[in-house]
C-alpha cells in the first residue's frame, strides 16, 4: 500500500525551480533511499514533503490526503517525523526539554520513558544542554525528537552527514530498525551505497528529476548508476 506519493512535484526558493517534476512513491513499511549528486534536489524534496519549501506545485499525497495546502505543523500532526540535516536539535534546551517541547504527543511522560529506554545515553544526560552533545548523541536526540509523535513516516535528511565514520554504521543500524517499529522511512543520503544496502527501494535524482528508480539491490548492481551517481563503479 502506498504511504507517500509525490505527483509531478515542482518547486524551489524564489524564482528558480530546484524540483522539476518529481513523481515518486513510498510504500508502507519500506525504506526508500533518495540519492544523487550535490544540487540534485534531494534535501529540497524532503523539505517539500514537510512544508518547509516556500514554493511547491503538484501533489504530495500522504495516506490519501494532499499535504501541499497544509502548514508544516499540520503535516507533523498527521504522522510524519522529520530530521533535518543540520540544526536538528534545540541547542539551548536540555535533552529532556527537546522531547517535552514536541506538540501533539499522547501520554508524553510514557513516550519519553520509551525513548530513553531506546536511547539510554540520552537518559543519562537528560538535564544536559543539547548544544553540548557530541555528533552521535545529537543525532540520537534528533531521532528521538522526531519519534516523539509516534510517526508512521520518518523523513531523514542526510542523517549521517555530521557523524564520525565510526558512528555512521550505528546510524544506519538505527534506520534499518525503524520499519520493525511500524515506521516507514524516506532517507536522503550522500552515502548512497550504504543507504541502499539497508533500503527496499532507491531513487536517484539528477537536476531535480528522477534519473533512476527501482529496487535497491538492482540499483546497487546497476553499472550506470554506480558510475554516475554512487561514487564508484561496481568493478572499480
Amino acid at each position: 500500500m502506498t504511504l507517500l506519493e509525490f505527483e509531478n512535484v515542482r518547486g524551489g526558493y524564489a524564482e528558480v525551480d530546484i524540483l522539476n517534476g518529481i513523481s515518486l512513491s513510498l510504500r508502507q513499511g519500506e525504506i526508500l533511499t533518495v540519492a544523487g549528486t550535490n544540487g540534485a534536489g534531494k534535501s529540497t524534496l524532503a523539505k517539500a514533503a514537510v512544508g518547509l519549501l516556500p514554493r511547491v506545485t503538484g501533489r504530495i499525497v500522504f495516506e490519501g490526503d494532499d499535504l501541499v495546502p497544509l502548514p508544516t505543523e499540520a503535516r507533523i500532526a498527521r504522522g510524519i517525523g522529520y530530521v533535518p540535516q543540520v540544526s536538528n536539535v534545540f541547542g539551548s534546551l536540555s535533552i529532556l526539554e527537546n522531547l517535552q517541547v514536541v506538540v501533539g504527543v499522547k501520554d508524553q511522560a510514557r513516550r519519553i520513558g520509551e525513548l530513553f529506554e531506546a536511547f539510554p545515553v540520552l537518559a543519562e544526560r537528560k538535564r544536559a544542554r543539547a548544544g553540548s552533545l557530541s555528533g552521535g548523541e545529537r543525532q540520537q536526540l534528533a531521532f528521538a525528537r522526531a519519534l516523539m509523535t509516534r510517526p508512521r513516516l520518518m523523513i531523514l535528511d542526510e542523517p549521517t552527514a555530521a557523524l564520525s565514520p565510526a558512528k555512521v554504521a550505528d546510524a544506519f543500524d538505527l534506520i534499518a530498525r525503524l520499519p520493525s517499529l511500524g515506521v516507514s522511512v524516506l532517507v536522503v543520503e550522500q552515502r548512497a551505497r550504504q543507504s541502499l544496502a539497508i533500503s527496499d527501494r532507491g531513487c536517484i535524482l539528477d537536476g531535480g528529476q528522477v534519473a533512476l528508480a527501482g529496487d535497491a539491490k538492482i540499483l546497487l548492481a546497476d553499472e550506470r548508476a554506480a558510475e554516475l551517481y554512487l561514487g564508484q563503479a561496481i568493478h572499480a
Binding site: 514537510v50 508544516t72 505543523e73 507533523i76 500532526a77 540544526s87 517541547v101 506538540v103
Partner: peptide, 8 residues
C-alpha cells in the same frame, strides 16, 4: 523551522 517540524 525545527520548532515547526516539532508541531509547534
Amino acid at each position: 523551522d525545527l520548532a515547526r517540524v516539532s508541531g509547534i
